[in-house]
Amino acid sequence: MHSRSVPNYWLYRAKTGESEDFWLHSETLPERSRLHDWEISLHRHEALFQLFVVKEGEGELLGPVGRVLPFKAPCAIYIAPGSVHGFRYSHDADGLVITVLADRLSSLGASDPSIAAYLATTRVTALEPNETDCGRLAALASGIHEELHAARPGGEIILDAMVTEAVLRLARTGAKTDRRDDIPASRERDRQRTSALEALVAAHCREHRPVGFYARKLGLSAGHLNRLARRETGASVQELATRHLLRAARRDLVFTPTPVQAIAYSLGFQDPAYFNRFFKRRTGMTPGAFREAERGKLVG
Rank of each mutant, 00 (worst) to 15 (best):
P113N: 06
E58W: 07
R281E: 13
C75D: 03
E20M: 05
R251N: 05
L24P: 04
W38N: 13
D190Q: 13
H91D: 04
M285H: 12
P129Y: 06
A139L: 14
S195T: 10
E294L: 14
R67Y: 07
A235D: 04
L119E: 02
V6S: 05
E156Q: 13
P64M: 14
A202F: 05
G135D: 02
R44E: 07
L168N: 07
R209S: 04
S90E: 12
E239V: 12
V53S: 10
L218W: 03
F290Q: 02
D160L: 04
L61Y: 02
G143E: 12
A120C: 05
F22R: 11
A249Q: 02
L148S: 10
H204K: 08
M285E: 09
G288S: 14
K217H: 13
S114G: 00
G154D: 05
A102Y: 02
L108C: 01
Y265D: 01
F278D: 01
T16M: 10
H43M: 03
G17Y: 12
L119S: 02
V201G: 01
T121H: 14
H224I: 00
G284E: 00
I115L: 15
S90K: 04
L225M: 11
G63S: 03
S111V: 09
R216E: 15
G17A: 12
S195P: 00
S26F: 01
A138L: 12
R88H: 12
I98V: 14
A161G: 02
E147H: 06
V65G: 05
A248Y: 08
L42E: 03
T28G: 04
G174F: 08
L246E: 05
R250C: 12
R179F: 14
L148D: 12
E207F: 10
Y118V: 15
L69D: 06
A151P: 00
H2M: 03
A161L: 03
R250F: 03
R206N: 08
T283V: 08
E207V: 08
A138K: 11
H43V: 03
L35I: 12
A175V: 12
P30D: 02
V167K: 06
V100N: 06
Y78W: 15
T233E: 08
P257V: 06
Y214E: 10
L51K: 04
L168G: 02
L108A: 01
A293I: 01
G63I: 06
D21C: 05
T242I: 00
R230M: 11
R123S: 14
L96F: 06
K15R: 15
F269Y: 09
Y118A: 13
L148T: 13
A14W: 07
E131H: 13
D182I: 11
E198Q: 14
